[in-house]
Amino acid sequence: MGEMSWLYMYMPIAGVHILWPGLVLIGFSVGVIGGFFGMGGAWMVTPGLNILGFPMAFAIGTDIAHIAGKSMISTMRHSKFGNVDYKLGITMLVGTMVGIEIGAQLVMMLERIGLVGSVVRWVYVVFLALIAWMVFYDFYKATQKRKKGDVGEHGATGIEWYKTLHKWKIPPMMHFHASGFTCSAWVPIIVSTATGILAGFLGIGGGLLRMPALIYLVGCPTHIAVGTDLFEVMISGLYGAFTYTLKGRIELVAVFVMLTGAAIGAQIGTVATKYAKGYGIRVAFGLAVLCCMVSIILKQYGFSAAAAVVILSAISLICLWIMKIMFVGAAQELRDKKAGLSQA
């Protein structure tokens, strides 16, 4: 390590030396991107931590704990916007917690047989591919629809599987006032258990999957899905943090370093949603997911340094774009405000 040793921070439990600017960058970016898209953004944290040198199980546990803290910040913000459907959130809670425990047990089982690193990495590759596909397919469909001038009640939405699921009449039926639809309670419960398992297994808040699931399978409007998902992540993330700590797979120091970066980033990301227009940023998001996927494959084949470069630059770029949206939009708003005041 030599003269560069000040760039490395000792993690007292896992016993590894970690590049701390990498930790700060990951925390900050995950805040910006998570605040903006309503997805925890943790799809980059577990692989990122693993690429920086954390053993896989520690990467998962540390990620899930930092997500819990970060989502507290974002949930506060979103509940101010009135974007949380609490009834839906509470309906989903039990499913999420059971799911997280199942996921965590699977990770520990894989660790015992020495396969946790490669299995989790390959599962990540599959899911990032799936998410990238969803983003791009959605973009493609919306573009097609817009060309035809067909704009439905949800605006130019893409996939609408929820229309089929809302036809299920299995009791108990529930009406979700804030989201404005009625469906069988089993739809959100099944969705939350499935996303919970993945959240616990991959060490994510689950926003990555729950958000699209809320929009495409449950049928929430996008802004309600963002807020409700964050509420879900907060409660379930705290449970995830607890169960992973009990299993001894957490690095608190890293949690706090990332949390501080994320707190600042989350403000920028959440405020930027106010000024964002169009699909361009979603395409960039899809590309960032693909870059993350590539870096995981690089790590799997032993190219750790290349993997770190790919993932850190991809998240920095998308982060810079969102920051640009936020600062340009905010400057415009403040200018308008001043102009309005001088006229009055």
């Binding site: 704990a65 930092h66 819990a68 803290g69 970060k70 989502s71 507290m72 910040i73 506060m76 913000r77 705290l238 943090a241 607890f242 700590t245 957490i250 608190l252 949690v255 706090f256 949390l259 501080t260 707190a263």
Partner: peptide
Amino acid sequence: AVVLTAVMGSVLG
């Protein structure tokens, strides 16, 4: 771990 994470999240929020 849970308490500190929650407290730190709220304080930062």
